[in-house]
Amino acid sequence: MKKAMDRVVDTVDIETYLLCKNESEGKRLALQLGEDLNLGTVDIMFQEFDGYGIRVRLRKYIHKPGKHYAWLKPEEYSDKG
């Protein structure tokens, strides 16, 4: 079965809200979320703690420019089924 991750053009971004006591706990949880989702180390693009929790935007680059892209393999684009 083909991997969905191979079809990601560039990034996986996650937006969510994590309940936490303060900003540093929120950031720790955000980074842990990336690990829990098997994305490895994610980058926190945006964070905003509001007293109850933290609104975060996380990013993981799957295919960076200049590298070799899994989606560019002929078997990927020629059989989209």
Partner: peptide, 13 residues
């Protein structure tokens, strides 16, 4: 993601 300076622009953005 224009204001995000730690990586390239993503298509979804």
């Amino acid at each position: 993601d224009e204001a995000y300076s730690r990586g390239p622009i993503a298509i979804a953005s």
